[in-house]
Nucleic acid binder design. Sequence first.
DNA 1: ACAGGATCCTGGGGGC
DNA 2: TGCCCCCAGGATCCTG
Length: 274
Amino acid sequence: MPELPEVETVVRDLRPLLVGRAFAKIAVGRKALRRKWSRAWDAQLLGKRVGAVQRRGKWILIELGKPWLLVHLGMTGQFTVVSGDLPREPHTHIVMTLDDGNELRFRDVRRFGSVALFSMREHVDEHFLDMHLGPEPFDLGADYWRDSLQSTRRNLKAILLDQTIVAGVGNIYADESLFEARLDPTLLGHAITPSQAERLREAIIAVLTRAIERRGSSIRDYIGGSGLKGSMQDEFRVYGRTGAPCLCCRTPIERMTLAGRSTHFCPKCQRKRR
DNA sequence: ACAGGATCCTGGGGGC
DNA sequence: TGCCCCCAGGATCCTG
C-alpha cells in the first residue's frame, strides 16, 4: 500500500505528536505481524522518550534514546496518533499509550506490515545493509542510476520496484514515473540511453515530490499519521485508469502484468521508439 | 540472471 | 443472500 510519499506523510504527521513524548503502556494483540512481537521489547520501550521520527525508503524509524523502533506498513498498515478516548478499530494490533493521553496505534488488516525494536541505531543500519536497501530517490546519482539500468536485462517496471536499486518506489509511483518520463514499462534496462535514464530519474523525483505535497494517495486503506487522507489519487495519469483516455493524447490507457504487478501505461505516449 | 508463480493475509466488488 | 473469482500502495521464497 504505502509507498515513499505515504510513508513520508506519516512521518511528518507523527513527528510533532511523538517527539518528546514517553511510552506509558504497551498493548499487543495476539495475531502476529510479519515479525512477531517480542515480549522483551515491552520493558525496553516503557518510559522511553521519543527523540526523532525518520523515514528510509518505505521504513519508519523512531528513536527512543538508545533503542529504535522500525516500522513497515506493508499493504494496509496504518500508524496513527489519536486520542486514547477514540474506540479502537478492528485489526488494531499494537497500542502504545503516550504520557499525554494519546495513543500511537498500529492497525493493519492484511498483516503484511512489521514492527520491530532494535537495541541501537547501528543494528537498524546493519539491517538495511543486509537487505541491500538502495539509495533514496532524491539522492540518486545520475551515474549510479544509469549504470544500474544498463547493467541488467530486466524491464523498467521491475527495476523501479526493486528496493535494492532505489528505495521507496512502489506500484503506483513506478507507473506514474514511467508515464512522466514517457517510457515504455517493458523497455529493458540495458537498452536505455543515457538521456532516457536521466529523464526517468528526474521523473521519479518529480512524481514523488508532487505526491508528498498531496499527502500521498488514499485509494483504499491509506491514511496519514493523524488520520487525514491524501489526494494524489485525484491526479493519477495512468494508475488505475485502464480504458480511460490518456490525458495527453486521448488514447485509452492499457493495463498489463509486469513483475507480477498490474502495470498501467499509455500505448501511444509511452511507445518504444528507435 | 531473470521471469513467473505461490505465499503470507483480509476484505471489497462484480458476476451469477 | 450466498458463492466464487479477481483484485489490492509489499516483500520473499522457490522453480524452471
